[in-house]
Design a protein around this nucleic acid. Structure first.
Lengths: 338, 338
DNA sequence: CACCTCGCTTTGAACGTTCAAGGTGATAGA
DNA sequence: TCTATCACCTTGAACGTTCAAAGCGAGGTG
């Protein structure tokens, strides 16, 4: 533990040159079997570990990935990010990467942070969350050829045909690697579950049009509930009180729905509070709130999503081939509420 | 954006040597006013930013702090870590530090990770959470003279007299810098609030003895509730169902309590579910669950705590003086449940 | 005048790694 | 025998920064 163990220490111990040690680590096939073993043993004995800073200086690769940590919004859906971060960290380690956090108040501040992180720490890549329509961050990164993955598909263009675009690294406008959870499939599964339970008029409480994610969740319900009946859907800002109000409204129309599919656990929590017995309610994200209230909710495979983000980014960094986007299916967690 | 801007670029542009540019950045008083300005201008014009990797190689300071991200346990109290992490990241940036995440299954794995992070990334320091009795992590770090702060006081020794110890950096066994929230004050405030509301028999639902935090929360209740009546306290593993059971038990004794102070929102959520109207319940941590259920809960000043952690660590790293520990008061968020 | 001090600046080296190029000895082909 | 090829290994240089030391005028002191 006394002195630092560098590549030179190992070289001396194994009676080879620095470069040979380096080769054992990076291009083992160049080194004779016997020598390789001798060096490996010296590494083990001395407890040598390659210094990233020095390696970075030569190679330009920091093995650092950055993710933004957002302020907990309403606290209910906040734990989603928490779990995603944990998944990222766990998936990154075996791939040889570490996760660096940064905070930013808005997209512009985030771009300034990119600039700073790239210049001072020479980050290898970014994982972006909360993508939205007209996201300036992705184009900034793409223009500069900075590798990145988004958790959430690119909303600037429609559909999931991103794989038809040639290169994500080339800086060309267009697509980039992404991982997303199939939101529509989630609400569709919830709706189907309600249909199976005998419900025939199923309402939907979601967010105002324009948020890609919200629109998807609505579409999944609409496609499954039979017909997209505008009178059975309500759009509101996210929140418990808002969910209450919307549910109250929906349940007081003539021929009211007997079940409510909600775009978030916050909305569902509010709706469930005012729904009379027998009216089923489902939420989205399978948060702690859903667990405590006994809300049936759509669960996103966050650990899996995080792992795929790391895979994609590692692929771009190592291989260079533009990887295919990944769309993951959510699952329905059934509890008392539906 | 084309070529890299290094200290040499700036030096050439300002007609000085590399070292002078370095001095402007690190020891400005050594440089003549006029020269200083000229260099500063060149830096601004060129958009120069010091490369951390190169700086690290010379100075041994990475300006990186590491924090462990834990798997969301029951999901209810998980958001506490989330908010703490966000606070850390925000506080670290202006101080010139960045936050690196790591995951570890247990304390032993965590120590292995320290070893790795220190060797490969030369981390400046660690922020530890979830400290507990007989924590092997702190002694490992202290022995090696690695700077660290804990969020949560050292439970190995009693009391808050850590400041009497000479040095936290010296590697001597003993105390280290820490930040904590005054758990006892939190449950005391909740209990006092209940007393003010007219309750006279106030029960407590907490965790088994031995977890420092849990014992503290119990002590705050015990000291305020009048007398420490064992018959009014229950200890159980954390969880909603466990809270239900404990509340059920407490409320069925003769002369049952009319109010329940709980050591967590999970326990409180369970208790609140089975408590008849009129029986008040308070939780701890002010999580999303408390917000949704309308639970009165003790809120920890997490952003503040995180900021103080950064302060202490930065103090140790820059100054070297062993900083005083910090004990922060929590606040009571009053809602319908009490 | 010789010498020292002070304020400011420059020069060479070093941190630990990998790249690019070169060296060496053995084997093979002409 | 000379040269080419090959497998393996070593040698300088470089990445961008800061440390340690030294240079260099101007001013002061004996």
């Amino acid at each position: 533990m006394a002195d630092k163990v560098t590549i030179a220490t190992v070289a001396a111990h194994a009676n080879v040159s620095r470069q040979t040690v380096s080769n054992v680590l990076n291009t083992p096939h160049l080194v004779r079997e016997e020598t390789r073993e001798r060096v490996r043993e010296a590494i083990a004995v001395l407890g040598y570990r390659a210094n990233q800073a020095a390696r970075l200086m030569r190679t330009g690769r920091s093995h650092l990935l950055a993710v933004r940590i957002e302020p907990t919004r309403d606290g209910i859906n906040g734990s989603v990010l928490d779990r995603f971060l944990h998944g990222l960290t766990e998936a990154a380690a075996p791939a040889g990467y570490r996760i660096l956090l940064y905070a930013a108040a808005d997209d512009q501040a985030e771009i300034a942070t990119y600039d700073d992180l790239l210049a001072t720490y020479e980050l290898d890549g970014f994982v972006l969350t909360s993508t939205h329509h007209g996201d300036v961050r992705t184009s900034w990164l793409a223009e500069r050829g900075v590798p990145f993955v988004t958790f959430g598909r690119p909303w600037g263009r429609l559909g999931a045909d991103a794989r038809t675009e040639p290169a994500a690294l080339s800086g060309a406008a267009g697509s980039h690697p992404w991982v997303d959870v199939d939101n529509a499939a989630g609400t569709a599964a919830a709706t189907r579950h309600l249909l199976d339970a005998g419900h025939r008029r199923i309402g939907f409480i979601g967010w105002p049009e324009g948020s890609g994610v919200g629109d998807e969740r609505r579409a999944g319900w609409a496609a499954t509930a039979g017909a997209d009946l505008p009178e059975l859907a309500r759009a509101t800002v996210d929140g418990v009180a808002e969910g209450e109000a919307a549910a109250h409204d929906l349940l007081s129309i003539s021929d009211p729905p007997t079940a409510l599919v909600c775009a978030s656990d916050s909305l569902a929590a509010g709706a469930y509070g005012v729904a009379p017995p027998g009216v089923a309610v489902t939420g989205f994200d399978d948060t702690a709130v859903a667990r405590v209230l006994g809300l049936t909710s759509v669960a996103q495979p966050l650990a899996e999503a995080a792992a795929r983000c790391v895979d994609l980014l590692a692929g771009v960094l190592d291989g260079g081939a533009a990887p295919h986007p990944v769309l993951l299916p959510p699952s329905l967690v059934i509890r008392q509420s539906a």
